[in-house]
């Protein structure tokens, strides 16, 4: 057996574990939130929980690929599409809610992406076009379904990514304390990084591309964790402990 598959499974495991720990930490911090930022916190939890679920299913799929059971692999791939497409919902909700302040508008707009996600899964089930190729780096799902690919890229990829980057630019140009800006921008950047490479991972054509995407996803999850819970080194850089004379 190739070592590449072990690297792939190890990366999957690392991403799912870090995301899971991050989700649990966010859940523990939930009681510190107020009425205004609770929806954002819940959405963040949903994003990382779905990333974690997505990679847990991917580990299982990779293990099934080793055994060579094609039908089970296809079933697991279809199951993994559910968290993959649903990730866009909380991302869109976060951006819309932060900008508009209206919870209902956020829910309505993110529901549109639920339709896109449903359409994507439906086209794959209906028209097929998914081929599994086992490389030295693990099992790849190559999609030849043009309709599904178009829905995926135009519906689920471009808009949420643009929304995150738009919010990032808004926050960057606002005059807010640097430490707060650092936390918010790094969080948004890491969500964008994870989301982009999550999609690149699912449409990757080669094993190397898949593993490289997973490395970036892992970096994104770690970055996001560090953005929410910054280490003392970063914190002291922005707050060097100046003694205030009353």
């Amino acid at each position: 057996m190739e070592y590449g598959i072990f690297v792939n499974i190890f990366l999957d495991l690392a991403i799912s574990l870090v995301s899971l720990v991050y989700t649990i930490t966010l859940y523990n911090k939930y009681c510190d939130c107020n009425e205004n930022n609770r929806p954002t916190q819940v959405s963040s939890m949903m994003i990382w929980a779905m990333v974690s679920i997505c990679f847990i299913i991917d580990i299982t799929r990779q293990l099934v690929a080793i055994s060579g059971n094609g039908t089970l692999q296809m079933q697991l791939y279809l199951i993994s599409l559910v968290p993959l497409t649903l990730v866009s919902l909380p991302i869109v909700f976060i951006v819309i809610y932060i900008v508009s302040g209206n919870r209902n508008v956020g829910i309505i707009v993110s529901s549109i992406f639920l339709v896109f996600g449903f359409l994507y899964i439906y086209t794959i089930i209906q028209f097929g076009g998914i081929n599994f190729v086992t490389t030295s780096w693990g099992s790849l799902a190559i999609s030849n379904n043009e309709i599904a690919n178009t829905i995926f890229l135009s519906g689920l990829f471009i808009v949420p990514t643009s929304l995150i980057l738009g919010l990032l630019i808004i926050i960057l140009f606002k005059r807010i304390p640097m430490f707060r800006k650092h936390k918010i921008c790094l969080s948004l950047l890491s969500i964008s990084l994870v989301y982009d490479f999550l999609l690149l991972n699912s449409i990757s054509q080669t094993g190397e591309m898949m593993v490289a995407s997973k490395i970036f996803i892992f970096l994104g999850v770690v970055l996001s964790y560090l953005a929410s819970f910054p280490p003392n080194l970063i914190e002291s850089r922005y707050d060097p402990g100046i003694i205030v004379i009353e």
Partner: peptide, 10 residues
């Protein structure tokens, strides 16, 4: 407006 926006970010 900015403060309200920041308040929505945990």
């Amino acid at each position: 407006k900015i403060n309200n926006m920041l308040e929505r970010i945990p």
